[in-house]
């Protein structure tokens, strides 16, 4: 039985390498029973997406949108 520390490590490593069958199964079983790690797993998807957007310059466009309208 995985601990949350181990499960979160496997979630993280799944973003960097293919997990083997045993790792995939034990993670799946853990996620079915653990809401914290299920949230962690979802958040990792969001974190990756947000980080990619940051690196594509999304933060500069956001800054532009937040500026007051130009003076006439």
């Amino acid at each position: 039985m995985l601990t949350c520390k181990e499960a979160s490590r496997l979630v993280s490593e799944s973003l960097d390498r293919s997990l083997d069958l045993r790792e995939r199964l034990s993670l799946k079983v853990h996620l079915m029973m653990c809401t914290g790690c299920t949230q962690f797993n979802r958040q990792m998807t969001h974190l990756r997406k947000l980080t990619k957007q940051y690196a594509a310059g999304a933060f500069t466009e956001a800054a532009d949108e937040a500026k007051p309208p130009p003076a006439p």
Partner: peptide
């Protein structure tokens, strides 16, 4: 090896809303 109650991941409000928010990127 299980989450501390204070640090257990919570449900996040819509991450897509953050993308176009200047303050979010400052926090990031």
């Amino acid at each position: 090896g299980h989450w501390n109650p204070q640090t257990r991941p919570k449900t996040w409000r819509d991450p897509d809303d953050a993308l176009s928010n200047k303050q979010f990127w400052a926090v990031f």
